[in-house]
């Protein structure tokens, strides 16, 4: 910012460099707080989305009428821009972190339901016949056969949802709950280059780290696919 120009030595904060180690040193605390908020908003939304997506996908898979309805609603929700999704829930929740989480949850839900459905639909009919022949009840068949086989597709959806949600969380800045997005907007209004670039890079890093974590989790829960 220009305020610094009158006094102090010529450091990267004063000349407003894009890359500034001094910025990282002096603003580590608020930056970490923003990362924590970002991670919190993202993880809560994705977990909530996954918890809600599971019964919806199973219902859509089992009941014909529920299928058309679920697919229709998730397609429309997916099409609605996130920023609009956030504000359509404002009357219920006001301007709070819950608003952002609800919007993001709805968004992840659309991705997760579709991927789970693809996974469930992809289960080999012969495998189901064999399971039925072994005398498995529908409930046990779901838990022991269908869901494990749908896991790769579901995990792929979870990765897409997580990565997209990290990026979308920034939009929450418009109501003050955007994690690194709030830092971005603050940096923009202060014309603070280092702050903007740092927040942007941290966003992408966060997305990549989450993606790698989920990839490792995917390998851990689907050991039979490891050779592929």
């Amino acid at each position: 910012m220009i305020v610094h120009a009158a006094s102090g030595p010529q450091n990267c904060l004063v000349v407003n460099d894009w890359v500034c180690p001094l910025y990282l040193q002096t603003r580590a605390e608020p930056l970490l707080a923003a990362v924590r908020e970002h991670l919190y908003l993202t993880v809560v939304s994705v977990v909530l989305g996954a918890v809600l997506a599971l019964p919806l996908a199973v219902l859509a898979h089992r009941v014909r009428r529920a299928r058309a309805l679920t697919l229709g609603v998730t397609t429309v929700l997916y099409t609605v821009p996130s920023i609009a999704l956030f504000f359509l829930v404002v009357p219920m929740l006001g301007l709070s972190a819950a608003t952002v989480i609800t919007g993001l949850t709805l968004y992840t839900l659309t991705i997760l339901v579709r991927n789970l459905l693809v996974g469930l639909d992809g289960v080999d009919a012969e495998v189901l016949d064999a399971a039925r022949g072994m005398g498995l009840s529908p409930g046990r068949m779901l838990w022991r056969v269908e869901l494990p086989l749908a896991l790769p597709a579901a995990m792929a959806g979870l990765r897409v949802a997580a990565v997209s949600t990290v990026a979308l969380t920034t939009v929450g800045a418009i109501i003050g709950y955007g994690g690194l997005g709030t830092v971005l907007v603050r940096g923009l209004s202060a014309n603070f280059h280092a702050e903007v670039l740092t927040a942007a890079v941290l966003c992408v890093l966060l997305a990549l780290v989450l993606d790698v974590v989920l990839l490792l989790a995917q390998r851990a829960v689907t050991p039979w696919r490891r050779t592929a």
Partner: peptide
Amino acid sequence: RAVPTLAVLTILVL
């Protein structure tokens, strides 16, 4: 997918 729209816009504006 990983790059936030807002980040790209903000950087370009500056």
